[in-house]
């Protein structure tokens, strides 16, 4: 039988997002709520001044949430439903499985992304080049979070441990770092701590394109280098070091 890679990827998208959305429409609200809640708080607290920063920040959070959700979903499918064992011993590969599951998280987030993109188009002022840079920034942070999610999921042995990882990652990557507000709001020496999170670099890049922070040419390039390096390392680890087949 001819193996269709498109079908194998589509299977993950159907199972992990489309069928879930069709069979339980309530999940459509699920992904929208977390970024919108923080967006609303930041906007009200700043009397609207930080709305454009928070709108881009909500997009970053949405990308990172895809990774933490992937980590939980994969862990659940592997440990509770034993689905991954069935997939491992079928004619598919870990790469096809992770691509399908990653895309399923994007499909799952479509309502949120659509809303946030409209919000950004209305409130965020940037150039076409700036728009392209923000898009690439989002694609990179998405790859980072998906790789991190897949890597962690292969080590989790039950859902409680998986919730633990998500509970740690979410605030460390999106709530505390300057994702929803400019990095200049953090006083020294705490600002150095913010640079421990890869999402800070993604935010610096996005905020530099919306006029909220000027890192200078050097800072802009360094942010890209750090973000790409961290993403490349995690993607390598996810593909090479994660345990697809158990030892």
């Amino acid at each position: 039988m001819k193996r269709r890679i498109g079908s194998q990827i589509m299977a993950s998208i159907l199972v992990n997002s489309i069928y879930a959305m069709i069979n339980y429409p309530v999940v459509l609200i699920n992904t929208l709520l977390a970024p919108l809640a923080i967006l609303a708080v930041v906007t009200f607290a700043s009397k609207g001044a930080l709305l454009p920063v928070a709108a881009v920040g909500a997009l970053i959070m949405s990308m990172v949430s895809s990774g933490t959700s992937l980590q939980q979903d994969l862990s659940h499918l592997k440990n509770d439903m034993r689905l991954q064992d069935m997939i491992v011993s079928s004619p598919t590969t870990s790469l096809i499985y992770i691509i399908g599951m990653a895309l399923s998280e994007i499909v799952y987030s479509i309502p949120t992304l659509a809303f946030l993109i409209v919000l950004n188009l209305i409130f965020v002022k940037t150039t076409i080049t700036g728009g392209f840079i923000i898009f690439m920034d989002m694609a990179t942070i998405f790859t980072f979070s998906i790789s991190l999610g897949f890597f962690l999921s292969t080590f989790t042995s039950d859902i409680i441990q998986s919730w633990g990882f998500s509970g740690i990652l979410s605030p460390l990557l999106t709530t505390i770092p300057p994702v929803y507000y400019p990095i200049t709001y953090i006083p020294f020496p705490y600002r150095y701590l913010a640079y421990l999170s890869p999402t800070t670099y993604a935010s610096v890049i996005a905020q530099s394109q919306t006029g909220f922070y000027d890192p200078g040419a050097e800072g802009f390039v360094v942010s890209w280098i750090v973000l790409l390096a961290v993403t490349a390392i995690l993607t390598y680890l996810a593909l090479k070091r994660s345990r697809w087949r158990e030892i």
Binding site: M1, K2, R3, R4, I5, S7, Q8, M10, A11, S12, L14, V15, Y19, A20, N23, Y24, L77, M81, L83, M86, I87, S90, P91, T92
Partner: peptide, 19 residues
């Protein structure tokens, strides 16, 4: 998977196999 129907369960497994 509890959120899938039996047909969705079988057909998605077959799609993972390449059908």
């Amino acid at each position: 998977l509890p959120w899938l129907t039996p047909l969705q369960t079988v057909s998605s497994y077959l799609m993972w196999r390449g059908y």
